[in-house]
């Protein structure tokens, strides 16, 4: 399974997005606000999800804003920083 596919799967499971299917999340869809509709509480969960499932730490929430833009940006960051 690719990083993007796994990301979509764990987002749905860990954030309890019961009404969303993985293929409904497009790679360039905005994760926050319009798009997937995540909010600031989800951002904190997202940091934990990335660390727990991919072993990649995101230390600075401000610097992480571009990383959290979409599945594309998040997957790219994970692939670049995976141990």
């Amino acid at each position: 399974m690719s990083v993007k596919e796994k990301l979509k799967q764990v987002l749905i499971e860990d954030l309890n997005l019961e009404d969303v299917e993985p293929d409904e999340i497009t790679d360039d869809m905005a994760l926050f606000g319009e798009g997937l509709g995540l909010d600031s509480l989800d951002a904190v969960e997202l940091v934990i999800i990335v660390q727990k499932h991919f072993g990649v730490e995101i230390k600075d929430m401000v610097e992480s804003r571009p990383i959290f833009e979409s599945i594309n940006t998040l997957a790219a960051y994970i692939e670049a920083n995976q141990p």
Partner: peptide, 14 residues
């Protein structure tokens, strides 16, 4: 469980 398995940094705030 999440605290024991992954440490406090990965404990879900929810």
């Amino acid at each position: 469980d999440s605290y024991l398995d992954f440490g406090y940094a990965c404990s879900s705030p929810t």
